[in-house]
Simulated scan of single mutants.
Amino acid sequence: MDSDSPDAPALVLLGHGAPEPRRADAVRNRGKALEAAQRVYRREGIEGLTMQKVALEAGVGVGTLYRGFTDKAGLAMALLDERERQLQELMISGPAPLGPGAEPVPRLVAFVTAYVQLVADQLDLVLMSETSAVGARFRSGAHNVWRAHCRHLIQLAGAPSGDYRAEALLAALSGEMIAHGLREQDKSRTQLADDAVGLARALVVAGPDHDRGPDGRS
């Protein structure tokens, strides 16, 4: 089965939650709030991105902002949606190897490389969205898309335990791991992408170990 098999799971464009129908005024307010949040974030960084400042910048009530986004983490997630959707669109219908038409390992490598860049570009927003609560990273719609994509490619490459290996790979691509590499280990984005690609390749070439004995021998 190749990477374009009809058995491949359909990737659905998701952000941090499927969109719900909204009234026209709610849609306008949300758009204004996101544009204002982006301006505040670019001007003052993640520390300056407060609900009060965004509401003032957008010209909407603070209560309106809380109803639309719940809290600062929800606002951060919404700001990430556009970049994540762009990557998802490329995965679904973009040129190979990120999009369909390539073998599973090159597609996985292309995804990992692109995802490292996405996280590094939006690092503070990613950290906010992933650490707002215990397990927040696992509950996002975007994470479900990344996991399904990685699991599918890992399984197509012939490796077992696709779900577990996909989660292991995504753990290495988390905001905290990327931040540690960039800020504590002083690695470049290229080095981090190379490290992540090496891990991805190791995960897809490792075979089943159910026939090995307790000492690791066949």
Results as ranks from 00 to 15, higher is better:
G59I: 12
G94Y: 01
G198N: 03
F111P: 06
R39H: 11
L79M: 11
M128C: 10
A200L: 03
E20N: 03
G99R: 05
H180F: 14
A102Q: 09
P6Q: 12
E44A: 15
E47L: 09
A166K: 09
R85V: 09
A18C: 01
V40M: 01
S5A: 15
F111M: 10
F138W: 07
R23I: 08
T50L: 00
E130W: 00
E35A: 15
W146G: 00
Q122L: 05
A26H: 06
P6Y: 13
V54L: 02
A172P: 01
A58E: 05
A58L: 06
L108T: 09
L108N: 09
A142F: 14
Y41K: 03
Q117P: 01
F69G: 00
L56M: 06
R22T: 12
V116L: 03
V62P: 07
D121W: 05
A148N: 08
A136E: 07
G63Y: 04
R85K: 12
Q117Y: 10
G45A: 03
G59S: 06
R137L: 11
K32S: 13
R30V: 10
A171W: 01
A200W: 01
L125E: 03
D4K: 04
R183M: 11
D7T: 12
S129N: 09
A136K: 06
S161R: 14
I154L: 09
A159M: 01
V134Q: 10
A110M: 02
L87N: 01
L192V: 13
D121T: 14
R43F: 00
Q88H: 13
L170R: 03
Y115L: 02
K53L: 04
V145L: 08
T50W: 08
V197Q: 02
A193N: 04
